[in-house]
Design a protein around this nucleic acid. Structure first.
Lengths: 121, 121
DNA sequence: TTGACATATTCCTATATAGGAATATTATCG
DNA sequence: CGATAATATTCCTATATAGGAATATGTCAA
């Protein structure tokens, strides 16, 4: 099987740096024409359209017609799953020396003292 | 160009649901042998080893040798970029009716009343 | 040493891009 | 209608998987 489609879910969609950049541009909640996004991110128009298409399919943005322009607007709510998942690990950068290490070290005390070598990939 | 490597950064690495699942298993900070992870997630051992390899390359987990076992441990700090990025949009699910819509609607008042049609993909 | 156990790695394949180039589509205007 | 502007879509290609199967590597124990 190949890698999952970028349009499968938000996680796959935002794995692309350019797409996150686009979302950042739309971050203020104001709608923007494709051309505005193009200028903001400095990518070719077809590329931006494709990225917006992906973002649209996962529901992170919405579109509105305005004459010959298409106004894209961020639909931030659909980024919540990413936030929620990441927040699960919040303790790791919040309390460095508290619960985590404490628990891990306590765990070590219950083991027999074995050689504990670090290694590289 | 093809899609970026899953080992390029954390965003690409965690785009895979199985890998997030593995990280969830390691979420308590305790180290675990591959076999324990295998049992926890119910995937074939080679698959788990490969996923762990990806997670290791982006630094989200660390390894330690313990006899013939390899103990993997979550390195939660490296998930912070995901959290930080997602947190940027926190307002979208925190205050639904406050700043965002307010600003967007204010913006609309400064425009000429044009047809504002929603559309589907 | 030999065998059993724990993991990693290699092969192979179907699939999905992302980017660039060119073109199609749709709407506005005179 | 014809030209122009704004976007989307199509083609093409190089690349990177995930998953399954089989195998290699490394370690411990008797």
């Amino acid at each position: 099987m190949a890698r999952a489609a970028t349009t499968l879910d938000v996680f796959n969609a935002v794995a692309e740096p350019r797409r996150r950049e686009i979302l950042d541009v739309l971050g203020d909640g104001r709608e923007r024409a494709v051309s505005e996004v193009v200028e903001a991110v400095g990518l070719p128009q077809p590329s931006v359209s494709k990225h917006l298409s992906v973002l649209l399919k996962v529901g992170v943005v919405t579109v509105t017609r305005n004459g010959q322009m298409r106004m894209y607007r961020l639909n931030g709510n659909n980024l919540k799953p990413v936030y929620d998942w990441a927040k699960t690990f919040e303790q790791y950068w919040t309390h460095q020396l508290d619960r985590i290490k404490e628990r891990a070290e306590q765990k070590m005390l219950h083991r027999r003292p074995d050689n504990n070598n670090q290694e590289e990939s």
